[in-house]
Amino acid sequence: MENQAALNKIFIHVPFYLYLVVAGFIIPIMEEIIFRGLLAKVLFGKYFKTGLVISSLLFMAGHSAFTPQTIVVYGIMSAGLAITYYKTKHIEYSMGVHILNNSIAVLLSLFV
C-alpha cells in the first residue's frame, strides 16, 4: 500500500537483507514498544484496555489508514496485535506476530 511504496522509495538502493532487517525486524519491535508498551501499558496503566484501543487508533493513523481499505487492513492488524498483547500479557508475542507480518510483506515485495 502507501507505506510499502514509501519504503520501496527509501530502500531502493539498499541491499535487500538490510531492508529485511529494518522493515521486517527493527521497525515492528519499535512500533510494539511505542504503541503497545509505552502508550497502552505505561501511559494508561490500569486503563489498559482503553490504552490498547487508543494506541491501535494511533497505530492506524501512523500508517496513514484513512481510506476504507487501509482502515480495514490496519484496523485488523492493530486489533490483532492488541488482542495478542492483552491475552498473553507479554509484548514479545505481539512483537513476534508483527515481525512475521512485516517480514512476509517485505519478502512478497520482491515479487511486486
Score class of each variant (00 low, 15 high):
Arg36Cys: 02
Ile54Met: 03
Asn101Lys: 07
Ala61Leu: 14
Gly62Ala: 05
Met95Arg: 01
Asn8His: 07
Ser64Thr: 11
His63Ala: 08
Val72Trp: 04
Ile76Cys: 12
Phe16Val: 01
Leu107Val: 15
Ala23Met: 12
Ile99Asn: 01
Asn102Lys: 07
Ile33Asn: 06
Thr67Gly: 09
Tyr86Lys: 02
Thr67Ile: 09
Ser103Asn: 11
Pro15Asp: 14
Val22Glu: 03
Gly75Arg: 11
Thr88Ser: 15
Val14Asp: 14
Lys49Glu: 01
Leu18Arg: 03
Glu92Cys: 06
Pro15Ile: 06
Thr50Met: 05
Ile83Tyr: 12
Thr88Lys: 08
Lys9Asn: 15
Lys46Gln: 10
Lys87Cys: 09
Lys9Trp: 06
Ile99Arg: 03
Leu43His: 12
Lys49Tyr: 00
Ile76Ala: 14
Val106Trp: 00
Ser103Ile: 05
Val21Pro: 07
Asn102Tyr: 02
Phe11Asp: 08
Val42Phe: 11
Gln69Gly: 08
Asn8Glu: 15
His98Pro: 10
Ser64Val: 04
Ala65Ile: 08
Lys41Leu: 00
Met1Ser: 15
Ile33Met: 11
Gly51Pro: 01
Asn102Thr: 12
Tyr85Trp: 09
Leu107Gly: 05
Ile91Ala: 01
Phe66Thr: 13
Phe59Trp: 07
Gly80Thr: 08
Ala23His: 04
Gly75Pro: 08
Phe11Leu: 12
Lys41Tyr: 04
Met1Pro: 05
Phe44His: 03
Glu32Phe: 00
Leu38Asn: 01
Ala82Gly: 09
Ile71His: 06
Gly51His: 01
Glu31Thr: 09
Ile104Ser: 13
Leu58His: 06
Asn102Leu: 06
Ser109Glu: 09
Leu57Arg: 04
Phe35Arg: 00
Glu32Arg: 02
Leu107Ala: 11
Thr84Arg: 02
Tyr74Ser: 00
Leu81Met: 11
Ser64Gly: 06
Ala61Val: 13
Ser103Gln: 11
Glu2Gln: 14
Val72Ala: 09
Ile10Gly: 12
Phe44Asn: 01
Phe48Trp: 07
Phe25Trp: 10
Phe16Ala: 05
